[in-house]
């Protein structure tokens, strides 16, 4: 047989093998976590906060962590949106090519910064303002983490807008602001939604940045200055206890977290379709 043919088949075989390994591992991760966690999942886990002796295996649930994670992720997503949207607009219609490229470079670098570093930096900011670990601190650290993700994703979406569409709206005498806020924003709505949900998903799953900025508590916070629990840290801390019952709750918390992330991803796909009604192809 031809040597070249053997080489071709060999490498093709290797490729299929690696693809299978990677897909297999993905299934293994989801399967193991769900199989371990689902039996420990109960209604009371979802609807109650930890009661006395919870971490020794007694009653209660992780409602504090579920609510806390939602607070943190929604807060950070909202705060990021307030900054990311104008930045994406500015890069699209106002900035010179040079300045835009500088901003993109610095956002790309921010994207690569480890979340623990954001945690550390958030901690420095909190020290500066005399804050203790609290919801606000966690939101700030998470915002730092997801801001570059959201901004660059929006920026990429906006760069795809057809020149003619901008021309059409400038041709009617629109100002730059009107072009970005009334036309480009509607054209890119589905893509921007994807960007926001991507950032949300990333934010709700991150633990390292909120480890020392958000704290952890058994209660649901009443103000921005109360410490707050979160699902990733609930997984981490419960896993760290020596009691099998509590460890099982860690698995269950991981399932809850996975489900939230899966829902975010699915709703992103569904909403994107629905919000595309007005998009000009």
């Amino acid at each position: 047989m031809d040597r070249r043919k053997i080489e071709e088949d060999f490498f093709k075989g290797l490729m299929i093998l690696s693809t299978a390994i990677i897909v297999g591992i993905l299934f293994a991760i989801v399967a193991v976590v769900v199989l371990k966690g689902a039996p420990a999942l109960s209604l009371s886990m979802l609807t109650q906060t930890p009661k006395g002796g919870y971490y020794l295996g007694k009653g209660g649930g992780i409602l504090n962590a579920i609510i806390g994670s939602l607070y943190l992720a929604f807060g950070a997503t909202a705060l990021s949106l307030i900054i990311a949207l104008p930045v994406a607009f500015y890069l699209r219609e106002y900035a010179s090519e040079r300045f835009a490229n500088f901003v993109r470079l610095s956002l790309d670098i921010l994207w690569g910064v480890p979340s623990i570093v954001y945690g550390a930096f958030g901690f420095i900011i909190m020290l500066y303002f005399g804050l203790r670990a609290c919801l606000l601190g966690g939101i700030i650290a998470l915002t730092l983490l997801i801001l570059p993700i959201m901004t660059r994703a929006m920026d990429e979406v906006m760069r795809m807008v057809a020149f003619e569409l901008r021309e059409a709206s400038y041709g009617l005498g629109s100002t730059k602001l009107e072009v970005v806020s009334k036309v480009i924003s509607r054209q890119t709505l589905p893509g921007m939604l994807t960007a926001v949900l991507l950032a949300f998903g990333r934010g709700i799953g991150d633990a390292a940045s909120i480890l020392f900025t958000a704290g952890y508590t058994d209660y649901i916070p009443h103000s921005l200055f109360d410490p707050v629990a979160s699902l990733p840290l609930a997984v981490f801390f419960q896993l760290g206890t020596p009691f099998p019952e509590v460890q099982e709750r860690a698995y269950a918390s991981a399932v809850v977290l996975l489900v939230i992330i899966l829902l975010t991803s699915v709703s992103s796909r569904l909403l994107t379709k629905r919000w595309s009604r007005f998009v000009i192809k």
Partner: peptide, 15 residues
């Protein structure tokens, strides 16, 4: 641009 309207090669309605 308000005083001088423009119709392009391809129709480009706004979204």
């Amino acid at each position: 641009r308000k005083k001088i309207g423009m119709l392009g090669q391809k129709p480009y309605p706004l979204p």
